[in-house]
Structure formats: C-alpha cells, structure tokens
C-alpha cells in the first residue's frame, strides 16, 4: 500500500506533490489523461505568479511544476479516477484503466469545471460556435463577430485575446460593473474591438447547425432583443469538481469540500483537500499552490501519527511467525 495519493495536477496537486515528495512520501499523482496541468493549460500569459517578472505561459508554468515534483520522486500517472472509497483506513482509488490503487492518505485537488449557462442550445451548439476555451477556438473566428459572456478576469482575458482574431467582440454581462481586476478591466475597456453589453443576460442561443446569435434580456427593464453572432464564449465562472466525493465528504453551502479551519482536513480522517475544490472565493494559481502545501503538510503529519501501526510487518518477521 502507498502512503499518499494526490488526485489532481493543477497548482494545488503539483505543489502538494513537491512537498510530499521532498518529505519522502513517494506520492502517486493521478494527473488525468487529458487535463494534465488543469485550468492554467488553457490560459496564455500568467502575469501574477511571483518569481516571473516577465510573465510565464500557463502551460509552461505547469510543466515546470510537474518537473519539480518528479525531480523529488513523485510518480505521475496519466489516468482518470472513476471512483473512490475514502471512508476506511485504506483509501481505494479506482482508475479509468481499471487499476485500483490503495493508500493511507489521499489529497483531493480536482479543481473546478467551467460553469454552463444552462440553456438548451448550449449542448447542441457546443463545438459549433459555443465554446469555453478562447485559446483553443479563437483561431476559427477570424474576422467574425463573437461575444464573451461574463464579467470576471477570465472573461476579460478571453475577450482581449479574441480581438486578435475576431473583428468584433461583445462582452455580455448581467450587471453594470465588472468583477474583474482593474488591470484586466482597463485592457478590455480600452480595446476598440470590444463593446460592452451591460445589464444583459443570455436567455437563448440561436442557430440550427451553428451559432447565429443570442437572445438577450435586459436585467433592468426586462426587454428582450436578439444579437447576431458567429460565436459565443462562455466565461461565467467555475464550479468545484466534487462529483466523485459528494456522498463521502461533507460539503459547504457553496458546494466546495468542507475543511476544518485553515487546515486541509476534510470530514474523513486521512483525506485532505486543496485548491479550487475547497475555495469558493480566491481561486488563484498562487492560493491553490499554497493550499497544496497545507495539504501536504497535513498529510505528512497524519501519516506520522499513524506510526508503525498501519504498516505491514516486514517480510522477515512474517517468515519467523510462520
């Protein structure tokens, strides 16, 4: 049996892996098969990670974090967790390949998933003009008219990035003020290709085979109108990814995994959580990394407290007993 399995490979998971590996816990990191690196893999320049005065590309930052974890002996597995058994002393992690891994402790750092608008056309037109990833799909909207829905940092970043390709980018936001940081706001507000559509929510996505436009409702007057578009990028926030554990771990009213105080301890002994999956508020690469550190230290402390009791007897002793 292993000492520690870390589920997740964003800043929280890899930072936990760096600390745990340096503490000789030989952690196994279940990094996912197609989402290794987490949310930063879909960003371009990261300008607010300390230590990189000229900025660093999100994918490069994650590659470096992974290398740092591997350097100290973390084992990275490119597989996905399909189910978890957390309640006993032995934690069982079933992977997509069918392999079951066992450990004394688990750090859960699965991050968050893009929030959806919840409209009928969203699924139907996904990949046909509806997108959640500007860096992936912006290329296909050269000289097109598109819109970004949302008012946070990621919406501003996407809108600004998309002006490289699109001839016109609307930013559709429910309120008349933005949640985004001042610097991101400034960039978007001063961009000539970006036009803000305030106090508006998307109530319908139009088009049969491809996005043709959206129906907007004015949140002040209730008036509705249609806006013609070739593409719609959804950036309205994220929801913690708890579907694997929601029936085994206590959650907060916000839907994140509940932890004790400033620690990473969940409602189940030996199970720790870190990063966006416990954070409804800050959700930064730096705060996720810090949270991963806390989880690794908590897990190390927990494993030490188990002492030798949980360890199987050495082979020689077993032979003597037999």
């Amino acid at each position: 049996m292993r000492q520690l399995i870390i589920i997740g490979s964003g800043p929280a998971g890899f930072t936990a892996a760096i600390y745990a590996a340096r503490a000789n816990l030989s952690p196994l990191v279940v990094a996912s098969s197609v989402e290794v690196g987490g949310e930063l893999m879909n960003t371009t320049e990261v300008e607010n990670f300390p230590g990189f005065p000229d900025g660093i590309m999100g994918p490069e930052l994650m590659q470096k974090m992974q290398e740092q974890a591997e350097r100290f002996g973390a084992e990275i597995r490119y597989d996905d967790v399909t189910s978890l058994e957390l309640t006993g002393d032995v934690k069982r992690v079933t992977l997509g390949s069918g392999i079951v891994e066992e450990a004394q402790a688990v750090i859960f750092a699965t991050g968050s998933a893009y929030r959806r608008l919840g409209l009928e056309g969203e699924d139907r037109l996904s990949g046909h003009g509806v997108s959640w990833c500007a860096t992936c799909d912006g290329f296909f909207f050269r000289d097109k008219t598109i819109a970004v829905v949302g008012g946070g940092d990621s919406a501003m970043e996407e809108a600004t990035f998309l002006t490289k390709f699109a001839s016109k980018v609307y930013v559709i936001h429910r309120r008349d003020t933005l949640k985004a940081s001042k610097i991101m706001q400034q960039r978007a507000l001063s961009n000539e290709k970006i036009e803000f559509v305030w106090n508006s929510e998307v109530t319908d996505i139009l088009g049969d085979d491809a996005v043709a436009g959206v129906t907007l409702r004015d949140t002040m007057t209730g008036e509705t109108r249609d806006l013609a578009l070739d593409g719609l990028f959804v950036a309205i926030g994220n929801d913690p990814r708890t579907h694997l554990v929601h029936d085994q771990l206590a959650l907060t009213p916000e839907g994140t995994i509940a932890v004790t105080g400033r620690s990473s301890r969940t409602s189940v002994p030996g199970v720790f959580a870190a990063g966006d999956v416990i954070d409804p508020t800050y959700r930064q690469a730096v705060t996720a990394a810090a949270s991963g550190t806390v989880a690794a230290l908590d897990a190390e402390h927990y494993l030490a407290s188990l002492g030798d009791a949980g360890e199987p007897a050495p082979a020689e002793d077993q032979l003597v007993q037999a």
Binding site: V34, E35, G96, G127, S131, D137, F140, F141, G231
Partner: peptide, 25 residues
C-alpha cells in the same frame, strides 16, 4: 469551430462527431 474535433467518416459521410479531449474510456 472547436478543436480537438474528431469526426468518424463512413462511406464518405460523417457518422459521428466528438468534440473536445476526453479520457480514453
């Protein structure tokens, strides 16, 4: 308009479209 896009062609026609990276299973 979104990649990766995986289209399965059969007899010259698109039989299935899969959008986005997914785990093997």
């Amino acid at each position: 308009t979104s990649i990766p896009a995986m289209k399965v062609f059969q007899g010259g026609e698109v039989a299935t479209t899969i959008i986005g990276a997914k785990p093997k299973f």
